[in-house]
Every structure is written in C-alpha cells, then in structure tokens.
Amino acid sequence: MIIAKIRSLLWADFFLYSLVDPRLLYRQIGKNDPRPFLLSFTVPAISTISGILALSLLGKQTSFFFTKITYGWILLFIWESFKIVILAALMDMACQFQGSRGNIREMVSLLNFSLFPQAFILPTSMIFSIINFAPVFMFVLFSLVLFVWSAWIAVIGISEMHSIQAGRTVLIFIFPYLFISIVFFFMGLLSLISLVSYITT
C-alpha cells in the first residue's frame, strides 16, 4: 500500500506546488491525499541538512564535520520542527483572532512545505564556492532570498487557507516573530532589573 503510494508520485505534488503555486499547495494539503502531515516534516530535514552542508563548504572542516552532519543534523531538525510548531500555533491563533477557523494541523504542514526553497541553498552556495566568487556573501544573499521565497509561500498558502487578503496574511505571518521578540525583550529587561535590584539590595 505504502509502496504503491510512493510509486504513484502523488506525494511529489506537494513539493512541486510549493515551488510553482502555493495556492495549489494548500488545496493539495486540504485534500489530505496522501496525508501531508508526516510527509511535510521531510522538508525541514532536507533544508537543515542543506544548510549545514552549505555552511561547511565555506570553511575548512575538521573531523567534527561528521558529528555535525549526523547528531548535529538531528538536533537542528528537532529544533526546526519545534520552531515550526510554535510558529504555526501562534499564526493559527492570529487567524482565529481575525475570525477564521483554527486549523493548526494544516498550518504546520503548510509551514513545513514552505521551507522547501531553502533546500536550494546548497546547490547555489556550492556553485559560488567552486568558482570561488564571494562564497560567504552569496551564501548570505541567497539565504535571505530563499527566506523571502519561503515567507511568500507561507503567506499565499495562509491566504488561500482562510480566504483572506494577502496584506492581512502578511500581518498574520509577522505576528509570531513580533510576539516572541516583544516577550523576550520584556523578559530580558525584567530579568535585568531584578538582577540589578538583587545585587544592589
């Protein structure tokens, strides 16, 4: 059954749509055939290994590389998945505040697939690393470009998911980053005040 599904190549549509049309991507997620939730976590796995390898190409490596590419990759994958779940939860909350129906499962799948362009950081970095043309600059530049591409996929996907305008969706997308920044800023500030107060009294 599973082999038959793999051979059907239906799963490839998620990856294809994430590159060519985020609206179709969400519709495919909504169809739930094949089930996208677990499959979507392959994308953070691919993007993290691409990121690690692209970074490794920029400098001379020691045998720590093998640890980085195995245990380090698993660690980063777990961290990336955790981040996606938190971001999806906060974005879903923001959607519900705007009167939309909560749908965290689809939101997680969508955000995972939106990371797919970031897998291309490896081939792009590799090209500039081989020709030795500003590899570090190009890595940073393409990281930014691919992040914007990922963000665009997420925004269009959420817009399709809740049938809301792209402008409002941008706010929904930014909300978790803003919220986390503000929370951490005040936590840091209050910790500092408490620490200084404790030391001085």
């Binding site: 390898l53 692209a54 490794s56 190409l57 490596q61 045998s63 590389f65």
Partner: peptide, 14 residues
C-alpha cells in the same frame, strides 16, 4: 549535490 558536498568536505578535512 549533498553527496558531492559530503565527499568534498570529507576529502578536504584538515
């Protein structure tokens, strides 16, 4: 690409 990168890094490991 990933395989090439791994091989390349492995060969140039200091």
């Amino acid at each position: 690409t990933a395989v090439i990168a791994i091989v390349h890094v492995s060969l140039t490991i200091q």
